[in-house]
Amino acid sequence: MRRRTGLAIAGAATLAWGEWLNWRWSRALIGNSGGDCEAVVVLGFQNPQATANFVNRWRVRAGIRSLSADSARGSRGTRVIFSGGAANGDAAEAQLMADYATSVLTFDGTVLLEDRSATTWENIRNVIPLLEDVDRIKIASQPAHALKARAYLRRQRPDLAERLVRADDYRPGEWMLLKPLLALYGLWTLRGLDADERMVSP
């Protein structure tokens, strides 16, 4: 009985730890920039098949739900940018995500594609020209990956990074069983970030 209780406590603590880390990452390097025009950048995941895979489908949904209510109604200049090249397949990740957004989710807002990048650094570098005229920037992916991308925008264009606001890519309980694994992987992928790039924004 004690062993079962100990295992249950350890399991609950592990889930809580994964939840907490993903929550923290989703709130790092963001501000409260105002304005009517926003861009949501959805980062692609390796996709060797001919249609968007599970991870990319979730990222598309997270990106679309990240649009604020006024933007979802068609605020002028607001856009969703799908970013990712053809890393492991014939079709670019950006195109597969855009196809899923428009044909399956029937998204009818403005969609832009960045279909040349192969790394997160390139994702950010290549979408910068598409962000120059917006008031708010949201980056949608798994929280650790999105934080890494925000840190890269801060390094490449600190002026644009001041426009970063939170995307709706973290929700309590979503991916709960996988969040400890995502947290472990996130700790590894974020090891190159400075301490101030991990701080939760006020």
Rank of each mutant, 00 (worst) to 15 (best):
residue 1 M to Q: 12
residue 3 R to W: 15
residue 4 R to Q: 12
residue 5 T to G: 15
residue 6 G to C: 10
residue 7 L to A: 12
residue 7 L to K: 10
residue 8 A to G: 03
residue 8 A to N: 05
residue 9 I to L: 15
residue 10 A to D: 12
residue 10 A to P: 04
residue 13 A to W: 11
residue 15 L to H: 09
residue 16 A to L: 13
residue 19 E to L: 08
residue 25 W to I: 04
residue 27 R to Q: 11
residue 29 L to G: 05
residue 29 L to M: 14
residue 30 I to C: 09
residue 30 I to F: 09
residue 34 G to R: 13
residue 36 D to H: 11
residue 37 C to L: 06
residue 40 V to I: 02
residue 40 V to H: 01
residue 41 V to K: 01
residue 42 V to T: 06
residue 42 V to K: 00
residue 43 L to I: 00
residue 44 G to C: 05
residue 47 N to M: 09
residue 47 N to G: 01
residue 47 N to K: 04
residue 48 P to T: 06
residue 49 Q to G: 12
residue 60 V to G: 05
residue 62 A to V: 03
residue 63 G to N: 07
residue 67 L to V: 01
residue 67 L to T: 01
residue 68 S to Q: 12
residue 69 A to G: 13
residue 69 A to S: 14
residue 70 D to L: 13
residue 74 G to N: 12
residue 75 S to K: 00
residue 76 R to Y: 13
residue 77 G to M: 10
residue 77 G to H: 10
residue 77 G to E: 10
residue 77 G to K: 00
residue 80 V to Q: 05
residue 82 F to H: 07
residue 86 A to S: 08
residue 86 A to Y: 09
residue 87 A to T: 09
residue 89 G to P: 02
residue 90 D to A: 15
residue 91 A to V: 09
residue 91 A to C: 07
residue 92 A to R: 09
residue 92 A to V: 03
residue 94 A to F: 02
residue 96 L to K: 07
residue 98 A to N: 07
residue 100 Y to I: 04
residue 104 V to W: 09
residue 105 L to Y: 01
residue 106 T to S: 14
residue 108 D to L: 06
residue 109 G to M: 07
residue 115 D to S: 15
residue 116 R to V: 02
residue 116 R to T: 02
residue 117 S to G: 05
residue 118 A to T: 08
residue 119 T to K: 08
residue 119 T to G: 08
residue 120 T to I: 05
residue 121 W to Q: 10
residue 121 W to R: 11
residue 122 E to Q: 13
residue 122 E to H: 06
residue 123 N to Q: 04
residue 123 N to H: 11
residue 124 I to K: 01
residue 124 I to L: 11
residue 127 V to M: 00
residue 127 V to L: 03
residue 128 I to K: 00
residue 128 I to R: 10
residue 130 L to E: 07
residue 134 V to E: 04
residue 137 I to A: 03
residue 137 I to F: 01
residue 139 I to S: 01
residue 141 S to K: 07
residue 142 Q to A: 06
residue 143 P to N: 07
residue 143 P to G: 07
residue 144 A to F: 06
residue 145 H to M: 08
residue 147 L to N: 02
residue 149 A to E: 04
residue 154 R to W: 06
residue 156 Q to P: 00
residue 156 Q to L: 15
residue 156 Q to F: 12
residue 158 P to D: 10
residue 158 P to I: 00
residue 159 D to Y: 01
residue 159 D to L: 02
residue 160 L to T: 07
residue 162 E to K: 14
residue 163 R to A: 03
residue 163 R to V: 01
residue 164 L to R: 05
residue 165 V to P: 09
residue 166 R to T: 04
residue 167 A to L: 09
residue 167 A to P: 06
residue 167 A to Q: 08
residue 168 D to E: 14
residue 169 D to K: 00
residue 169 D to F: 12
residue 174 E to Y: 13
residue 175 W to S: 13
residue 176 M to A: 15
residue 177 L to A: 15
residue 178 L to Y: 15
residue 181 L to E: 10
residue 181 L to Q: 13
residue 185 Y to S: 14
residue 186 G to N: 03
residue 186 G to L: 04
residue 189 T to S: 15
residue 190 L to Q: 10
residue 190 L to G: 05
residue 191 R to T: 03
residue 194 D to F: 13
residue 194 D to C: 04
residue 194 D to P: 02
residue 195 A to I: 12
residue 196 D to N: 14
residue 197 E to T: 06
residue 201 S to K: 00
residue 201 S to C: 09
residue 202 P to D: 14
residue 202 P to W: 14
residue 202 P to Q: 11
residue 202 P to G: 15
